[in-house]
């Protein structure tokens, strides 16, 4: 009986690990490709271990193009991503507080509007938004990539509302009796308790924004202002076959920040979503 249990355990772990390995194989392949010689990549070699470790791919790739190194592209990406993520957290938590904790006329309408935006396909507003920014003379700047994130993101507002519904209302009532205004209830009670939901928002918004390609593609026109994702695509387009290794090297680097954020906050992620319940 005991051996059977151990056997099941072994089978379980082997299966989970094996399937997990298949899952991340493409990513591993890319990372190993960043150390491979170009001809080895083009042969479609399966091996994850390069014939010889070619570090020069990183040096070549880092040089970037148009006299702009990847340092610049990373800086741009960090700038946009950090500010947009910050904006999302602040604005979404404010809005979530309003919609879930305060009773006022019109709340239902805004709640419905929020749900509607969550389901609105981005393509519908992509072009008119572009034209509006263009008419404001801001079509070639970071503003369209950042400002909307300070207006709350429906997806995160919804998540935070779910989370807040788990915070007992008695806390608010007790605070009101103690003379707290609704503003300080937000800053002193809700915000500190919201931490797990905020962490979830940070992770997800960070990698959404970091990976974003369409936005930069539309709004950035000078290489100096390119984000990493745009720079990699341009790198791949312009380069002839000789540069696959360098492209993979830069791709690998571009994924590092996302990995780090994830590793750092990982244990909060499931908890954050977990406690929010997400009951429809």
């Amino acid at each position: 009986m005991k051996t059977k249990k151990i056997l099941i355990k072994i089978i379980y772990h082997t299966l989970v690990v094996a399937f997990g390995f298949v899952m991340i194989y493409p990513v591993l392949w890319m990372i190993s490709g960043s150390f491979k010689d170009n001809s080895e990549i083009l042969r479609g070699s399966l091996s994850l271990i390069p014939d010889e470790l070619k570090l020069s791919n990183y040096a070549t790739g880092w040089k970037g193009f148009s006299k702009i190194t990847f340092a610049r592209f990373f800086a741009n990406s960090f700038f946009i991503t950090a500010i947009a993520t910050f904006g999302t957290v602040v604005s979404s938590s404010l809005v979530a507080y309003s919609l879930s904790r305060i009773k006022y006329r019109g709340r239902k309408i805004w709640f419905t509007a929020m749900l509607a935006t969550m389901m609105l396909p981005g393509q519908v507003i992509m072009i008119p938004s572009f034209l509006i920014w263009y008419n404001l003379g801001l079509a070639n700047s970071y503003v369209p990539l950042i400002l909307p994130y300070f207006c709350g993101q429906a997806f995160f507002i919804y998540q935070m509302m779910q989370f807040m519904s788990g915070i007992p209302r008695e806390l608010d009532e007790a605070a009101t009796i103690d003379g707290c205004s609704k503003y300080s209830i937000y800053t002193h009670i809700i915000l500190p308790l919201l931490k797990p939901a905020i962490v979830t928002t940070v992770i997800i918004q960070f990698y959404w924004k970091w990976d974003d390609y369409m936005g930069p593609l539309l709004y950035l026109s000078k290489p100096k202002s390119y984000t990493v994702s745009l720079a990699i695509k341009m790198f791949a387009d312009a380069a002839s076959t000789t540069d696959y290794g360098a492209m993979f090297a830069m791709s690998t680097l571009s994924l590092l920040p996302v990995f780090f954020i994830f590793l750092f906050f990982n244990k909060y992620l499931v908890e954050g979503i977990g406690t929010s319940g997400l009951k429809g």
Partner: peptide, 19 residues
């Protein structure tokens, strides 16, 4: 969980599309 989450984490990026 982290292992299985990795593709979601990187899947939207241009790098993975090229891979």
């Amino acid at each position: 969980r982290s292992l299985y989450y990795v593709p979601s984490l990187v899947g939207g990026s241009i790098a993975v599309a090229l891979v």
